[in-house]
Design a protein around this nucleic acid. Structure first.
Lengths: 339, 339
DNA sequence: AGTGTCCACTAAACCGGTTTTCTAAACCGG
DNA sequence: CCGGTTTAGAAAACCGGTTTAGTGGACACT
């Protein structure tokens, strides 16, 4: 039998007599033969895989509930459309190297600010890409949420409850050693906080902003650091739920009760937020939906290459008030008033 | 320039005069050229990616904290060794189809019992594979934990506290519609529970075993179902932490306090277990480590093809007593004694 | 019987690289 | 000045398939 016949037997059995076709297949799985998947990809010129690009190491990614929820959305949409998922993250520290080797038809990039050189690399490689949580590249589709508005809502909530000594627990970017500028997300949230606090006559001085890794431990350490520094906030604005929960843990260890002594407001509304005690007041953002929409946009772009206008999606955020926030403690309130 | 020269410029620059090499590269990234990654794979005959094979849809996978932790372990080990990760899950319901197209050098299969036809397919395709949570295929490496021992410890703990009306909340396999037999894991844990209960003179009748999806919602529904059926347990043995937490939620809605009215013991010890209130008594298993070891074994097998004895790893479990379990309520205890 | 269609299958080109082998010029010592 | 060794680059084979363009025989029709 020619290899043409074998190929037909697998992909185009109508072009063979049904007899030979079945015979070929029989022999094939008797021999444990399968068409080499890589060779197929080469001729078919598409891999039916989508890349999920992150500047962070995979191991930290999977332990991040935010990312898990986002991946769930991406996976859901990709699966529905028949695509597989391939995670692209730095190889030996180089994201560029990982991109070079990536065998994907398109890329969803999350947490990648526009200034990364990799995005240029991806475009010049001709890979369709959509950015999530960053829209500073107008020529690429993007999905963002209203971070600033959500942050404003969180800050307003605390101001209305009478808080004036507010600690901001910020997320630092993971590669902050080499690049200390905050990510776009952190910047936008901080801007939201600041707008409201300034309007309320509260001066957000730098020492009231502490940063750390966006994890429970990171939040715990950040709050402890602020406390050790002498800060005595009545409320915390945390840029992620994980950090908020970490702050609550640290506060509890210091003997503070929530929300009686300390109000905490998070950001993201991960599943865990509703499960902790007290349940976390937080800003909800449609994380899963971001994943779904990103894939939807990506496929639209892939289908009509060199296509129309890039689309920029902006999803809403909203404050969810739960048990972790309450009125400012009365004696503190008086102290504030007297000053 | 010949394409040979271009190839050398990228992979083997020493074979060109440094002058031409740099010139080629300049022209290349001026033109936005990159060596086609798929074509490379074809000649190099390895993809440097590892497959993570699951019989469940990706979307459900990522929302599962157990799987997240496992993936973290896999990712950590893979990354360290320079491998990428590709998730293999059913395509249009067919896991076999997904395996056929998978461009990976090896496979870590989790939650795949030995009776799946796919494992045979994978072997005949010549792909190295290690099984996690299943060891009924002696010719493949495997990583398991002592599920039965852990289950025994959990049951003993409750028996020692005086409980006799114990509800078992079991995980059903996700494709239970087509295949109602429990997975190996559920089987082993159930065996552990039963051993201890029987020895204590407690007859675990079928209606005291309720099954559901291995999620918080699944656990909640399962407990509600049992309650509606008229069962009034003083303790719950849940086969996963998520289901344990769901049961606690259901119980709280029914007005029960934990551990005063109801003791709950989970399984897995996911991060969340320590964070809920009351903190969950549970059986710890080294989930992350399972991922690391699976990759380690896989690479060992890949390096020395057709190699030595397949290795079978068995990791320990241990009971972690937290706040969700306590002595049986006294009046119930009396009722029991009188009967 | 001659010829036009179909049918079942095959030869050859191609996908886009890598790798081995080859060639021609430069270099070298005696 | 000549044979032998480097050196820079090119030609050709190969990876393992898919796809296009044949090819030869069976069959039908006139």
């Amino acid at each position: 039998m020619s290899k043409t016949a074998v190929s037909f037997a697998f992909n185009n059995p109508d072009r063979l007599s049904s007899e030979t076709a079945t015979r070929i297949r029989e022999v094939a799985d008797h021999l444990g033969y399968r068409p080499h998947p890589v060779a197929r990809l080469l001729t078919q010129r598409q891999t039916m895989t989508l890349g999920v690009l992150t500047p962070q190491a995979l191991a930290v990614i999977f332990s991040n509930p935010f990312f898990a929820l986002f991946s769930e959305g991406v996976a859901h949409a990709a699966e529905e459309l028949g695509y597989e998922l391939h995670f692209i993250s730095p190889r030996n520290g180089s994201l560029a190297a990982a991109v070079r080797r990536a065998t994907v038809d398109g890329v969803v990039a999350i947490g990648l600010s526009g200034d990364h050189p990799e995005v240029e690399q991806i475009r010049s490689a001709g890979l369709p890409m959509v950015l999530v949580d960053s829209e500073d590249l107008p020529e690429h589709c993007s999905v963002v949420v209203d971070d600033e508005g959500g942050a404003r809502a969180a800050a307003e909530h605390l101001v209305e409850l009478g808080h004036r000594d507010i600690l901001v627990v910020a997320v630092e970017r993971p590669d902050s050693a080499t690049d200390p500028s905050p990510t776009g997300v952190a910047e936008r949230r901080l801007r939201g906080y600041r707008t409201v606090l300034t309007a309320a006559g509260i001066d957000l001085s730098p020492e009231w902003i502490v940063a750390g890794r966006a994890s429970i431990d990171g939040g715990e350490a950040a709050f402890q650091r602020a406390w050790a520094y002498g800060l005595r906030p009545t409320a915390v604005l945390a840029m992620s739920d994980a950090m908020a929960i970490g702050s609550m843990r640290a506060a509890r260890q210091l003997g503070l009760r929530m929300p009686a002594d300390l109000s905490v407001v998070g950001f993201d509304d991960i599943d865990l937020a509703a499960l902790v005690d007290p349940a976390l007041t937080t800003v909800h953002q449609p994380i899963r939906q971001k994943g779904v929409d990103a894939v939807r946009l990506l496929l639209a772009e892939m289908e009509q290459r060199s296509g129309i206008q890039p689309e920029h999606l902006r999803l809403e955020t909203r404050l969810i008030v739960r048990g972790s926030s309450g009125p400012v403690p009365s004696q503190r309130q008086e102290v504030q008033r007297q000053v």
